[in-house]
Design a protein around this nucleic acid. Structure first.
Lengths: 160, 160
DNA sequence: CGCTTGCTTGGAGTGCACTCCAAGGTTTTA
DNA sequence: TAAAACCTTGGAGTGCACTCCAAGCAAGCG
């Protein structure tokens, strides 16, 4: 029975977080197989190939038999893409950004604007989350009190 | 041609944010049709019915002919659900919470824990977004410099 | 009364972001 | 050299959160 293409996201061998990304090799010997990149990024091999298909990656180098060989530069790009993903940016927008990078230096302005509007979206989202947190805290402290006096609690809640 | 079931999220008639929720009627005359609730919540009628089907709503009162009549209490619940949705909580978890509420007072402990872990998730997410913001800012200031070099200073200034 | 608009249902469809599969070729280990 | 593990592709499948549809009943107005 072959396992192939691990799917379990907990099999990351990096349970204790932190920037301990295994052992990147120096430029020149940076020809990583897809499964090494899986370890570096936490993405699945499926996802890495899919990123390439949709144009989110630059063209990845290949071995003489056609297997992917990722470079340190590719890893840097994947790190950045991971950050964009954390912002909640849709994949389509990330692809747009990747296209701009491929098109060359004359797209700096547009890239700047894309990042700026992403930045604003992140700031808005943070504000939104902080507001929500306030509501959550009120509800939580209500339940904490209710814990002390479970009988009256329901009436209090319906009154808000 | 019948329009029915508006789909356009910008047809909210509430473009200028704020808590100006139209005109809630006093308790006793609070029997809103589904389309009134659409205006209050910004959700579509489809979504409101779907929330009911999946058990995210308590049983909604009906007119003598079977049409939904929402109460102020239902509106409060939908507001709270909206907050939970903003946290990114999966709908399945919200349904779980709704079940706990239906089950009665003896589930206070579990509700408390659910809210507490949601709270922690929100805090983590805020931290994550702030970290991401730092990366974004570095990238943006790089582009801002590049823009200056490229003679695009005007754009930079207008962007702040 | 007829017309338009609104509401009902179960079930099917959509868009996103993956996620997996089959069938085969490649590389590493014993 | 043979088995085990790893890699390739195009296309199909999954899960989530809606989103829409068809067919028909209900409500408000001139």
């Amino acid at each position: 029975m072959t396992v192939l293409e691990t799917t379990n996201p907990t099999t990351n061998s990096d349970d204790c977080a932190g920037p301990r990304r295994q052992d990147r090799r120096p430029d020149g010997q940076d020809r990583y197989t897809i499964s090494e990149v899986v370890v570096f990024t936490g993405l699945t091999a499926h996802t890495l190939r899919w990123y390439e298909r949709i144009g989110l990656m630059p063209h990845i180098d290949r071995s003489h038999t056609g297997q992917r060989r990722y470079s340190n530069r590719d890893l840097d790009w994947l790190d950045f893409v991971g950050k964009l993903r954390l912002t909640g940016m849709p994949v389509a927008d990330m692809v747009r950004y990747a296209e701009l990078v491929r098109e060359g230096d004359h797209t700096y302005g547009e890239r700047f604007e894309l990042l700026e509007s992403t930045r604003r979206a992140v700031l808005d989202r943070i504000t939104e989350l902080q507001d929500t947190l306030a509501v959550l805290d009120r509800k939580i402290s209500f339940y904490a009190e209710a814990d002390l006096d479970a009988g009256l609690a329901r009436q209090v809640e319906s009154a808000r």
